[in-house]
Amino acid sequence: MATAMMAAATTSVPLPALAVEMEKAALFDFNLTLPAITIEFLLLMVALDKLYFSPLGKFMDERDAKIRAELGGVKDASEEVRQLEEQAQAILKAARAEIAAALNKMKKETTTELEAKLDEGRRRVEAELVEALASLEGQKEEAIKALDAQIVSLSDEIVKKVLPSA
């Protein structure tokens, strides 16, 4: 029912009045408004390009160039770091060789010193052994002499007791 009334109301409005209403409802006129808006748009584009986008693009280009330069510097530095690492490895290798040589030298010196002390100890022990053997030999000789003397005196006594005196 409501649509029927609207349709009746629309058909009851004369056509020229409808054209006037449509003209009032238009967003803008295409007479001089379109070129004016086009000119405003172009001026705004030029102004934004000169005031905003060009400086921003220049800044971004400079920043990009700076970043690329720093990256190139980092690549150069990485090569330098690699060379320094190689030098450090060479120095460490040389230091390890020096330490190994020093350890071997100390080991040889210590071994030589220990062998000398062992030889000295052996000589002392041998000297003491020779001295002790000589002392024992001397005591043996004295014991044999003492025994010989006792044997002679005992054999004389045995002979005296066994053989009657004649």
Rank of each mutant, 00 (worst) to 15 (best):
G57A: 15
A97N: 08
K58V: 06
A97S: 09
A97G: 02
A95K: 15
Q87V: 08
K93C: 10
K50D: 07
L92W: 03
E62W: 11
V74Q: 01
L51D: 03
R68C: 08
R82W: 03
A94W: 03
A94R: 11
K75N: 09
E62G: 11
A90S: 10
R96E: 15
F59R: 14
L71Y: 02
Q89I: 12
A65F: 08
F53I: 04
A77F: 05
A97D: 14
M60D: 05
I67E: 02
E79D: 12
R68K: 15
A90V: 09
E70I: 15
S54Y: 03
L51F: 07
Q87E: 15
R82Y: 01
E86M: 03
R96S: 14
E86V: 00
K93L: 12
A47I: 12
E86P: 00
K58Q: 11
L71A: 08
D76Q: 06
S78R: 12
E86T: 01
D64H: 14
D49W: 04
K66H: 12
L84N: 05
R82L: 03
V74W: 02
G72M: 07
Q87R: 14
I91K: 08
V46N: 00
R96W: 05
A95C: 06
D49Q: 01
A100G: 02
K93A: 15
K58S: 10
L84W: 00
E86N: 02
A90P: 00
F53D: 02
A47R: 13
A47T: 12
S54L: 08
E70A: 14
L48K: 14
D64G: 14
